[in-house]
Design a protein around this nucleic acid. Structure first.
Length: 593
RNA sequence: UGCCCGAUGGUGUAACGGUAGCACAAGUGACUCUGAAUCACUUUGUCAUGGUUCAAAUCCAUGUCGGGCAGCCA
């Protein structure tokens, strides 16, 4: 069964942004709905980005539109191609077989075309969909020429000026609502100085280009905001062509415009920037319909940190093995852990889109993962912490091949053969010498069903010199095998097992929450709340069919958890990541007493 | 402090002036050759105070609480 076979079951969701888009579609406001996902390539994408990806691409697929992938790369000192590559990989994985036909890209190396729109000169860079060969993501840095031209246009309109204030002075003037002494420079002088800024005549921070809006506006972002700064730094995409770079506010709205974006969806912290977004586009008198910005609440998850700064710190300080450590909330970490993209998308649908800054229980994510994996995972038997069991009345050397169901949720996936023999392994937790109340598993003198095999009774507990249990000697009801005379006998417990001589060894990585507290972000030192037991590596006994395990498949080790093959596996070396445990009501029950 | 935004069970959301619903979580029971899954049932909610209205979670006012912004970051 391939991973792509299971579709996201959820119906198309409804939220305030989709309501707005639906209204625009109804009134035919735009020829086509066009969204974009614009990460800055300064870190790996995380599950909060997944929410945004599912929103933007979801809108594109629900309303017959397109969603551009764009690198929002206007700050050369923080960005890197490593991140560009990981972002593409993560986005492609997440939208695969769902919205990959809505992914807007552009021909490699292509920059905006000079076109005429409504009789006016204009810049436009159309998206290409439905292919990937020869295509690449959009880059805001591909528009530096056009953005520069727009800045010059703004100067010529008397709506921008070159300011000589230092960064500290600028802050102070803006705080006080005071006009810069350079605010009323002539257009000619501004043009000259801006050209010389571009030509590299001034050091970093010596001058800046500022929009001329309102000196003492209540909204700080309208107090003559900076739109260009000097940065003598090489850029990962444009090399050393530029030594001035546009600020986010200036570059973003214009990038949206150039790509023909209709709905520019971002998180709440940009809400106060929206008047500036609109001011820039309106001030330029652009000839095509303008994009508009809409904001929603970013995702916060319990037992998780989400800021790129903190995730980077975990990586740099080796608290995890890398950005794709399966404990990380990054898309690559979640993927490596074994979570299917369908589960992540279902989660994104389930949490909804609002303007309320809430804290989502990680249990919602875990539920989406279990629901998905329950449907798709092959059932297998594996013993994580083995105890040896000898069936004393079972002939030595005899081996039976039992039929075992691959997935009861999908009977069409068939069965596989499971060897049974005299010596087995069972789970240490499935035996108790002194059983607690309501213990349905194996105990001295007690009976239990071996899944797909016999009912056995524990006759003797053999211990080593140190008093540890070395093996259990049991007898089997040899008529109780599935289909046998006493197969219908009711025993309270059924446990999993592996035939000892046939067992395949594997390394298993048991992952748990990275943090011990629900809100690691709130304390002074989030690293103090790291869970020291978030990873445990053990060596386990698997049923023989698992030696052919594939990274494309998901497995449920029955009664335990879901697992996926890790990339550290090699021929003859199985490494499984525990994606998530099965729900464990017994643990809950045992905890009560 | 100024400006902006928000508030519906424990958590996340729906209801768009007309029966407060869904999911997760929690609990009870049924079933079970996975203490899983499945099924049934249960608990818990409109921030406060006024106002408009036949009728308010929804509209208005005030207050309270929470979040965001005040980088030459995005």
């Amino acid at each position: 069964m391939s991973l792509e076979n299971i579709e996201t079951p959820a119906a198309a969701p409804s939220d305030f942004i989709r309501d707005i888009v639906a209204a625009h579609v109804a009134e035919n406001k735009y020829p086509r709905i066009h969204t974009r996902f614009p990460p800055e390539p300064n870190g790996y994408l995380h599950i909060g980005h997944a929410k945004s990806i599912c929103l933007n691409f979801g809108i594109a697929r629900e309303f017959g539109g397109v969603c551009n992938l764009r690198m929002d790369d206007t700050n050369p000192t923080k960005e890197d191609v490593e991140y560009v590559e990981s972002i593409q990989e993560d986005v492609n994985w997440l939208i695969s077989a769902w919205a990959d036909d809505k992914l807007g890209l552009k021909p490699h190396g292509k920059t905006p075309e000079a076109v005429t729109s409504n009789g006016q000169p204009d810049f436009y860079l159309p998206a290409v969909t439905g292919a990937t060969a020869g295509l690449e993501p959009f880059y805001a840095s591909d528009y530096f020429d056009q953005i520069y031209a727009y800045a010059v246009a703004l100067i010529k309109k008397g709506k921008a000026f070159v300011c000589d204030l230092t960064p500290d002075e600028t802050d102070e003037y803006r705080r006080q609502g005071k006009a810069s002494p350079f605010r009323d420079r002539s257009v000619e002088e501004n043009l000259d100085l801006f050209t010389r800024m571009k030509n590299g005549e001034f050091p970093d921070g010596a001058r800046s280009l500022r929009a001329k809006i309102v000196v003492d506006a209540p909204n700080i972002w309208l107090r003559d905001p900076l739109i260009y700064r000097i940065r003598h730094a090489a850029h990962h995409h444009t090399g050393d062509k530029w030594c001035i770079y546009p600020m986010y506010d200036f570059a973003h709205c214009l990038s949206d415009y150039i790509e023909g974006i209709t709905h520019s969806i971002c998180t709440l912290e940009f809400e106060v920037h929206r008047p500036l977004y609109d001011w820039i586009l309106e001030s330029l008198g652009l000839p095509r319909p303008l994009p508009h910005q809409y904001e929603f609440a970013r995702l916060s998850l319990t037992y998780t940190v989400m800021s790129k700064r903190k995730l980077l710190q975990l990586v740099n300080e080796n608290s995890v093995t890398g950005w794709d450590d399966p404990r990380m909330p990054t898309i690559s970490g979640i993927r490596r852990r074994g979570v299917p993209a369908t589960a992540l998308r279902a989660f994104a649908y389930n949490i909804g889109i609002t303007k309320y800054n809430g804290l989502t229980d990680v249990a919602v994510l875990e539920h989406a993962i279990r629901e998905d994996l329950n449907k798709r995972a092959f059932r297998r038997l594996a013993v994580l912490r083995p105890i040896k069991v000898v069936i004393t009345n079972y002939p030595e050397g005899q081996v039976e091949e039992l039929n075992a169901v691959n997935n009861p949720e999908q009977p069409e996936t068939g069965t596989r053969k499971l060897p049974f023999s005299r010596e087995l392994f069972i789970e240490r937790d499935d035996f108790a010498e002194v059983p607690p109340p309501k213990f349905f598993r194996l105990k001295p003198g007690g009976e239990v069903r071996l899944k797909y095999a016999y009912i056995i009774k524990c006759e003797e507990v053999v211990k080593d010199a140190a008093g540890n249990i070395a093996e259990l000697r049991c007898t089997a009801d040899l008529d109780s095998k599935t289909g046998g005379a006493t197969a219908g006998r009711k025993v309270k417990g059924t446990i999993h097992w592996v035939s000892a001589p046939h067992a395949v060894d594997a390394e298993v990585r048991l992952y748990d929450r990275l943090f011990t507290v629900a809100e690691p972000d709130t304390g002074a030192d989030f690293k103090a709340t790291l869970n020291p037991h978030s990873l445990e590596v053990i060596h386990v006994k698997c049923e023989p069919s698992l030696k052919d395990a594939s990274p494309a498949e998901r497995y449920q080790f029955e009664r335990l958890a879901y697992f996926a093959l890790d990339k550290d596996s090699a021929p003859g070396k199985l490494v499984f990541n525990r994606t998530i445990t099965l729900k464990d009501n017994w643990a809950k029950e045992a905890h009560k007493s």
